[in-house]
Design a protein around this nucleic acid. Sequence first.
DNA 1: CTACCATATGAAGATACACTCATATAACGG
DNA 2: CCGTTATATGAGTGTATCTTCATATGGTAG
Lengths: 121, 121
Amino acid sequence: MEGQSDPHPSSSQIQSQACCPTVPEISIEELDDEVEIFAALANTTRYGAVRLLVAADGEVCACDLAPPLEVSQSAISHALSRLFAVGLVERRKQGRWRYYQATPIAEELIDRIDAHQERDR
Amino acid sequence: MEGQSDPHPSSSQIQSQACCPTVPEISIEELDDEVEIFAALANTTRYGAVRLLVAADGEVCACDLAPPLEVSQSAISHALSRLFAVGLVERRKQGRWRYYQATPIAEELIDRIDAHQERDR
DNA sequence: CTACCATATGAAGATACACTCATATAACGG
DNA sequence: CCGTTATATGAGTGTATCTTCATATGGTAG
């Protein structure tokens, strides 16, 4: 399998008007952390939670996030744990409550998306 | 199933130092488009393609993207189609080649991620 | 035309994912 | 203490997702 591709560097030199405008080299292996950040946002529950936290512009306890998202306690807990794992939210414990807050990177990503949606509407 | 939650508005008024700092209302249904954008980036092949395009800072033909990502022709084609569908890349046909280019929103999201990675390293 | 090349697309199998359920932990209130 | 509340976590399951294979399309060169 993988019957070798590499089409153009063959025969003569097809680099003038053909493809190949020198493709930059990037380390593909090191992309996984970043993919995980986007993967954490690639789900309605988790993205909705981030949006709520960004809109709240401050701390919100987990129990206040579940109802508007219409998901169970377990679901929001799983969701917030994953968001925390990739650094999209911070959390603080107070008594029996756990307060969550969006991190700067979360705010920035949402901000970019909002600006984009604003543009082409 | 779903034995109704809504914990605090019950008994007395537990809003002072408890949770509930007025959770903002957002339209959860309208989030799907945005989730699709992040979902498109939540895969190594697709994210790698976007990174290559952003790094290239210009057009790159599909055949030049497959080798560095170590994926098949079919895989890169599927990947680019999906990225195009959500507006993360643009494309232009020239002869039998198809040139892809990152869109502004793609560049901005990558830019935010890079700045973030820079920060906590 | 006919061969070949770059790309696209549909179906299909293997894998990963997001819930739910059950249960655990921890903090408060009586 | 014991019951209740808020949250966390592991297992299990239905569903979605990604890649490959096969094939289609559209362009180019002989």
